[in-house]
């Protein structure tokens, strides 16, 4: 179990996170928050790239900073801005990272082959990475994060650059991997989160605003989300969430504390509604 106890992170006098308490057990946890909310800071602390200003991050009761290499040996990480050696092929790059992850040569070769196959890159395994597309590079990134068969897999914007088919493939892969490990996934793509996350963690004003299963989070807005094709007719105070085209009409989806059932159709809230509502003052 990975747990955060009263984590605070300050840069000078600016507090990014304050008093964060979280517990991660097996499953997929989605970090959902707008830019600048502290998601990447939290991820960098979980990956030991930066240290908290206060509090502790514990793996099975031990501080991860003191665990050092034994924590990093169970950690897989895909950063948002994935760097790679442009002159190396995916195979050479993965074998090199396998060595840095302390895998012996034979294991590194076997796992590299298996992972290249898993992410659909076997055919370009020996091409230089500078010749690969953004989506392919992202898949190399996913493969490298899995090289050491990590118990804690941390992915920062993993589906960026993937086409719809690859995204579905990736979601299935994550769902499969999460059966026996912790997967922490930071993303802006709400549809990815809704289908695979067991828990959604939302950060607001440097603190945890929500840490629940998606369905439970959606329940916060139950009975308060409506759809109408004539938003002008809604005189009650409301928050416009999204708009979509339905044939020739524009359907508006909105949140209102008041009962608007006579003017609009009440609908089931989704995670996107909650996201837009929670961060309404940060647009």
């Amino acid at each position: 179990m990975l747990s955060l106890s009263n984590i605070t992170k300050k840069y000078g006098s600016f507090r990014v996170l304050e008093g964060v308490d979280l517990e991660f057990t097996r499953g997929v946890y989605a970090l959902l928050a707008p830019n600048g909310a502290g998601k990447t800071t939290l991820i960098k602390m979980l990956t030991t790239l930066i240290h908290p200003s206060g509090g502790q991050i514990l793996w099975n009761g031990d501080d991860i900073v003191h665990l050092g290499a034994s924590y990093r040996s169970i950690l897989g990480y895909l950063p948002q801005d994935f760097g790679y050696y442009k002159n190396q092929s995916p195979r050479k790059f993965l074998e090199y990272l396998g060595a840095v992850k302390a895998l012996d040569r034979r294991t590194a070769i076997i796992r590299t082959d298996r992972l290249l196959d898993l992410v659909g890159l076997s055919e370009v395994a020996d091409k230089k990475m500078r010749k690969l597309s953004g989506g392919m590079i992202q898949r190399v990134g996913i493969a490298q994060a899995l090289l050491n068969e990590p118990k804690v897999l941390i992915l920062d914007e993993p589906t960026a650059g993937l086409d719809p088919q690859q995204r579905v493939h990736f979601r299935n892969l994550i769902a499969r991997l999460s059966q026996d490990r912790i997967v922490i996934c930071s993303t802006h793509i709400v549809s990815d989160v809704e289908t695979i996350a067991n828990h959604v963690v939302m950060i607001k004003d440097g603190a945890i605003w929500a840490n629940d299963p998606p369905a439970q989070i959606c329940r916060r807005l139950e009975g308060k989300v409506y759809e109408t094709s004539d938003i002008q007719a809604v005189y009650e105070p409301h928050l416009l969430l999204t708009q979509r085209q339905d044939g020739t009409t524009t359907v508006s989806r909105f949140f209102s504390e008041a009962d608007c059932s006579l003017l609009a159709t009440r609908v089931e809230p989704n995670l996107e509604d909650v996201f837009l509502w929670a961060y309404r003052d940060q647009a």
């Binding site: 790239l49 994935f82 050696y85 990272l97 840095v100």
Partner: peptide, 21 residues
């Protein structure tokens, strides 16, 4: 090269860190 290729973040979370290498 390590610094310019931005592999630093990944390398730093591996068993052997950049500092150790």
């Amino acid at each position: 090269v390590d610094r310019a290729s931005r592999v630093y973040d990944i390398r730093q979370t591996c068993y052997f860190t950049v500092a150790q290498v």
